[in-house]
Design a protein around this nucleic acid. Structure first.
Length: 209
DNA sequence: AAAGCTCACAACCGCTATCTT
DNA sequence: CAAGATAGCGGTTGTGAGCTT
């Protein structure tokens, strides 16, 4: 599967290293683990993640199972690039809510807080940095005081700035900034939906591994 | 062609909120 | 009401892929 080509995350330890340390597995999920979790939740439903972790036989923490399910395996998870409309929504919601990623995600069906957070950090924040340095101004004094108190100073600045940009996003033609609405391309990603056929093939009876 | 740099993103950690006993 | 357990959230990190020099 495609995801696995990016295997090897997680604070620099290899899965096998950790595996030997104890009973809890860390690091990237394998296809087998995905299938186990997927099938288990299919049959028993979400929630009680520690129980899921135990009962499914996965050597993962409940936390890890939850994260994997929410961010990756859930059938309604949309993967691939964020559309212009979604970007605009994110900008607007962030201006309103601050770094409340899960709340923002609720307004974007199929998108996860993690995905939005990543998007914000890699795309928006980067852009903010670039443009603010070129403007050479102190954005901290800009408006944006309606932000959540949790937000950092730079968050506030970037957020209000981002919101300013929202307008230009609606009509990208007029955009003079270096921010570009992402190209739409759905290639290169496997979808959790890919598991469905697999699941059908293996059937409910199957217990992977 | 190789090396270095940047980007994207999955997954971890720590903290907080909520639920249960 | 207090303490412990569990779930959820946001921040951060590590790594592979792709791009640039």
């Amino acid at each position: 599967m495609e995801t696995m080509k990016k295997a090897g995350r997680g604070k620099g330890r290899t899965t096998s290293q950790k595996e030997e340390e104890g009973t809890v597995r860390k690091g990237p999920w394998t296809v087998e683990e995905d299938l186990i979790l997927f099938n288990y939740i299919l049959n028993h439903g979400e929630g009680l993640w520690n129980a899921v972790a135990k009962a499914s036989g996965l050597k993962r923490t409940g936390k890890s199972c939850r994260l994997r399910w929410l961010n990756y395996l859930r059938p309604d998870v949309r993967r691939g690039n964020i559309t212009a409309e979604e970007q605009l929504l994110i900008l607007q919601l962030h201006a309103k809510l601050g770094n409340r990623w899960s709340k923002i995600a609720k307004h974007l069906p199929g998108r996860t807080d993690n995905e939005i957070k990543n998007f914000w950090r890699t795309k928006i924040q980067r852009h903010m940095k670039a443009s603010s340095s070129s403007e050479n101004m102190d954005i901290r004094h800009r408006s944006g005081n309606s932000q959540s108190s949790v937000m950092t100073t730079t968050d506030q600045g970037s957020s209000s700035k981002a919101f300013d940009m929202a307008e230009s996003l609606i009509s990208p033609v007029t955009t003079t900034t270096s921010f570009h609405v992402l190209e739409q391309s759905n290639d290169g990603y496997w979808n959790a939906e890919d598991l469905w056929p697999v699941q059908l093939l293996t059937g409910d009876h199957h217990q992977v591994v």
